[in-house]
Simulated assay, not measured.
Amino acid sequence: MPSRSDVITPALLRDWALPVPTGGKEARGTVLVVGGSRFTPGAVLLAGVAALRAGAGVLQLAAAESTAAALSIQVPEALVVGLPENRDGAVRGDPGDLLGGLVADADVVAVGPGLNDIDTTTELLRLVLDAAGPETALVLDAYALGALSHEPDLLVGSGRRVVLTPNLTEARHLLDRDPGDDLDAEAIELAGRYDAVVSLYGHIATPDGRAWREESGDAGLGTSGSGDVRAGLLAGLLSRGADPAQAACWAAFAHAVSGQRLVPRYGRIGFLARELLDEIPYTLATV
């Protein structure tokens, strides 16, 4: 029997309104994106800008040192920190005290966009978990999910506010088998196994078995960089005060509807992940 989940609709979201912080940028929190490599700095850019578009107050990017100057020009709103690289251009897992300090001071840390080496990512993930405070929210994406699959008990019982954002390939690693057709059930299993909220292709689940699904996503979202946008969107919503399940549901909806808004200009496929970014604020504001 298929698993039961609630459809994410504008009416459901209006009844689950996002926090609207008052005051300066500090009231909307600090997002730190840890990721990138010499060859994939764009993933960090997409995630970071998405976090700002979702309402984060302060953005910090930690990426491969060879890309830091270019990122700081492309995202002038962000503090950009270069992390040491290995010979292959991957961020090393021994970046010193600077990254630990940034993690400790952040409200939300998104780990994974653009990382490309499982061993160094595992070391980075351990550093982040050691440095993060108990109230720090985490978004784990891409290679960070591969690292987590090697240490499945890493989050269990920690009480941390964590959202996992696997695609089907990453879900296969986390499940240690191919996902079935019932993605509601797979998301629920992953949430229980890893003690975290899971957002799997618009199927959201919590460790206690609550589940939602977003049904308006279309084929155009299956484009390079789209997952980085979704991870950053989630981080930005967490930063402004949403709880993990709420942030995951709102992010899934905003990601899908932002894509819908591009269809009249570009068709169902062919729009770019970076073009989703400018649609996010209006999509959130008009729910």
Rank of each mutant, 00 (worst) to 15 (best):
L61G: 03
Q60V: 12
V75Y: 10
N86S: 11
L61I: 07
A78R: 00
A69P: 14
A56K: 11
P76C: 07
T67Y: 02
A51Q: 06
R53G: 06
A64C: 11
V91Y: 11
L61E: 04
T67N: 07
L61N: 00
L79A: 15
A54G: 02
P76F: 13
R53D: 11
D88I: 05
D94H: 08
T67W: 05
Q74C: 11
G89M: 05
V91K: 01
G82S: 01
G89W: 12
S72E: 08
G93N: 02
A62M: 05
L59R: 06
V91R: 01
A63C: 14
A78I: 02
G55L: 07
G82H: 08
V80C: 00
P95A: 05
R53L: 10
L71T: 06
Q60N: 03
I73V: 15
T67M: 09
G82A: 00
R92M: 06
G82D: 00
D94M: 08
R92C: 05
R53P: 01
L83P: 01
D94K: 03
Q60G: 01
S72I: 08
V91F: 10
Q60E: 09
A68V: 13
D94V: 07
A54T: 01
P95T: 08
E85P: 00
A90Y: 12
A70N: 01
N86C: 10
V81E: 07
R87I: 10
A90E: 04
E77A: 15
L61V: 09
A90R: 02
Q74N: 13
L59A: 10
L79C: 14
G82F: 14
R87F: 11
A64Q: 00
E77T: 14
G96T: 12
A70D: 02
A62W: 13
R92N: 01
A64E: 01
V80Y: 11
Q60C: 06
A90Q: 06
A69V: 15
G89L: 09
P95V: 09
L79K: 09
A78L: 06
A70E: 00
R53C: 07
V75L: 11
G57C: 08
A63I: 10
A63P: 09
L71A: 13
E65V: 14
A54S: 04
R53A: 09
V75E: 14
V75M: 10
E85Y: 10
A62E: 02
P84Y: 09
V58I: 15
L59G: 01
A70S: 13
E85W: 12
R53E: 05
A90G: 04
G55K: 04
A54D: 01
D88V: 08
A63T: 15
P84K: 02
L71I: 15
V91H: 03
E65C: 03
V81T: 06
P84S: 03
I73H: 11
L71Y: 12
L83C: 03
L83I: 07
L71H: 11
G55D: 02
A62Y: 12
S66C: 15
L52F: 10
A56V: 12
A64R: 00
L79P: 04
V91I: 04
L83R: 03
R92S: 04
